[in-house]
Design a protein around this nucleic acid. Structure first.
Lengths: 195, 195
DNA sequence: GATTTAACAGAACGATCATTCTGAATCAAG
DNA sequence: CTTGATTCAGAATGATCGTTCTGTTAAATC
């Protein structure tokens, strides 16, 4: 019998991603990976080479199926502050559905648990944050009356920091509305600053 | 020969703290703990009971020797926005000294790596964040022309989120000045919002 | 249907780790 | 000095983990 449930590498990666995301790299053993993916050890090793390489594949898969769908609205040409609000709400709602304290953001988790011991993960995290900054800068530049770009650049960096903080707090807080309140207050101060 | 270098449990805890802080819980083995503390396994086990309990002791030690000295100025009765600025600068300077990307905040690291698998760590992290919020609220209420307390409360929560984000980013960024710029921009928007 | 290929399940291996245990060494008290 | 308690260094233990290997089974090709 060939691969019973994960017929493609994408499916395999998605199942592995869930484990890494919710339990971290160290707490996810090869044994649980074999069980949850229904792919044999041999299959995983021939397809990816090892646990670490599978983790890298999950990193990219996470960006494709989680980050991009949620953040694309901020990156669109006509995006404004409301797009940023929608991005935050999407992510908070996801955390609230699965029950807070939630698994947070895969990238943010990798940034503290994996990146210090793995250069590849470190550059991936840096690229992710750069993407966020560019997206925020785009949305902020479409808000208010044409603010100077160095101003929106600085505010975009603040948005990136705030985003990382949101994820961090979603791992210990049990109150989704407290996160929503923080987002609303933050966006209000941003708006006040841009008009 | 009794304990050669760590004569007290406090010294032992401080040396262990450095390891946990810089390399995380999983990447810090009992072997490295024995080597860096110069205390025998037997000594560690009789003094603390195990690795996890030692970690909890390090958590409290971190708050005593790192958090409190840096954050006390925000908690003082007459504290204002400049105290918050000093707190951020203290922490960024610490990270820049040891070289970015740095070890970040022990509490923030524990929040993503240890808290999900350990209820005690989870409550400790929650208490730490509550302390931060109270401190920020104190400093914010002394700023501007007596803003309503629910306003400073909301802004204090934003400050906590921002703080967590700062630590998260300090683990992957190599540019301390980018962090300083984010802090300055953030504090400017806060000040503009309070006056 | 015979042969080749690919994937499987699970044992085996080597390494690491937290914890416990053993015997020696050190120090305090009389 | 001698006794007794304490601490040490390091081996032993039992468990876990990532990786590799072996025999077997299912699919694909002709």
């Amino acid at each position: 019998m060939p691969r019973t449930t994960a017929h493609t590498n994408d499916e395999l990666t998605e199942r592995a991603l869930l484990q890494f995301w919710h339990h971290g790299f160290h707490a996810t053993s090869m044994d649980t990976l074999v069980k949850t993916t229904n792919v044999s050890r041999h299959g995983i090793y021939t397809a990816f080479g090892g646990k670490k390489q599978l983790f890298h594949a999950c990193f990219e898969r996470y960006q494709d199926i989680v980050v991009t769908p949620a953040f694309a609205c901020v990156e669109e040409p006509g995006a404004d502050l409301s797009a940023i609000a929608r991005y935050f709400e999407t992510q908070i709602a996801r955390g609230a559905e699965s029950g807070l304290p939630g698994p947070g953001c895969f990238v943010a988790n990798a940034s503290t648990e994996t990146a210090p011991h793995d250069a590849i993960t470190q550059t991936k995290v840096a690229q992710h944050n750069a993407r966020l900054r560019n997206g925020f800068q785009n949305a902020l530049s479409n808000t208010g009356m044409a603010p100077p770009s160095d101003r929106t650049d600085a505010l975009a960096q603040v948005c990136v920091v705030f985003t990382n903080g949101l994820w961090s707090m979603s791992r210990t807080t049990t109150d989704a509305d407290a996160l929503r309140a923080a987002v609303k207050t933050f966006l209000d101060t941003l708006k006040a600053d841009l008009t």
